[in-house]
């Protein structure tokens, strides 16, 4: 079941000049939301923004019926959203997409930049299911690191920064945690990073789940704009994905 409902903004936390976290209150009881699912958020107040924006669910607080969205300002739509104030109403279509398939006893989560957004809620779900996880976050510098305390409370956190201001200096692909054995890898971030990780996973014969970000008009399966080329032909990122096994994707 998918819903089209209003939420109330309860927090708008600035991480960097182009990154912010919206915490949204649902006035009813939240339905079941899977890690890796996303919402389509209506952007109001800018006449140049016509379509909704698909945004990953960063975290879910089932007790409080709140969800968090980590948003990077990339254009007019996300810029408009960054102006939301506490008490404002936003309309979401949710929950959308397939979400992560949870497998194994020990798994590795790898996130790059704001692409890491869905991994926090995944780490939370894994902990609830008593699945041991390591999480490797790659970002530009320490200022671009978000939700660090939460990650630490849920998983073994490893960090790689481009300038070495926190954790390993370098890219996630050179982190030694990759040498260890895992039952699955969950990866979200820039496409080149996901491709590199998926290549590594293939060599080690580990299933690798990646989260794709495609332009979409609707987000719930009808516009057919967000297709991705898979071994079984064109599939819609919004309903068959956004999580795919990398081995299913033609381009990976």
């Amino acid at each position: 079941m998918r819903y089209c409902k209003d939420f109330i903004v309860v927090e708008n936390e600035t991480i960097t000049s182009t990154l912010f976290i919206l915490k949204l209150q649902y006035p009813e009881t939240l339905p079941e939301i899977k890690a890796g699912q996303f919402v389509e958020i209506l952007v109001e107040g800018n006449k140049d923004v016509f379509l909704r924006r698909p945004i990953s669910i960063h975290d879910v607080d089932i007790e409080k019926n709140q969800i968090s969205l980590l948003i990077q300002i990339v254009g007019k739509g996300t810029d408009q959203l960054s102006n939301l104030k506490i008490g404002d109403t936003v309309n979401l279509i949710f929950p959308l997409g397939n979400g992560f398939t949870i497998v194994g006893n020990r798994v590795l989560l790898i996130g790059g930049g704001c692409g890491a957004a869905p991994l926090l809620y995944l780490a939370r779900v894994l902990k609830q299911r008593q699945i041991k996880s390591d999480i490797l976050i790659g970002c530009k510098d320490v200022n671009h690191l978000f939700s660090k305390k939460e990650y630490e409370s849920l998983s073994n956190l490893h960090i790689a920064t481009e300038d070495g201001s926190c954790g390993l200096k370098g890219l996630v692909t050179s982190h030694k945690i990759l040498e260890e054995d895992f039952d699955a890898i969950y990866c979200c971030g820039p496409t080149p990073m996901m491709k590199a990780i998926s290549k590594h996973a293939k060599e080690k014969n580990i299933p690798c789940y990646v989260s794709l970000e495609h332009k979409m008009a609707c987000g719930f399966g009808v516009c057919l704009c967000c297709v991705v080329d898979t071994n079984l032909g064109n599939k819609r990122t919004c309903v068959t994905g956004p999580i795919f096994l990398s081995s299913e994707l033609k381009d990976f």
Binding site: F50, L51, K215, M216, L224, V227, G233
Partner: peptide
């Protein structure tokens, strides 16, 4: 019909372009 290659959609002022191609 598999339709056209991605990208198939672009947002425009007060509208959108699509090139789905009868998938």
């Amino acid at each position: 019909r598999e339709g056209n290659a991605y990208p198939r959609m672009a947002e425009t002022s007060s509208g959108m372009l699509n090139a789905v191609g009868l998938q």
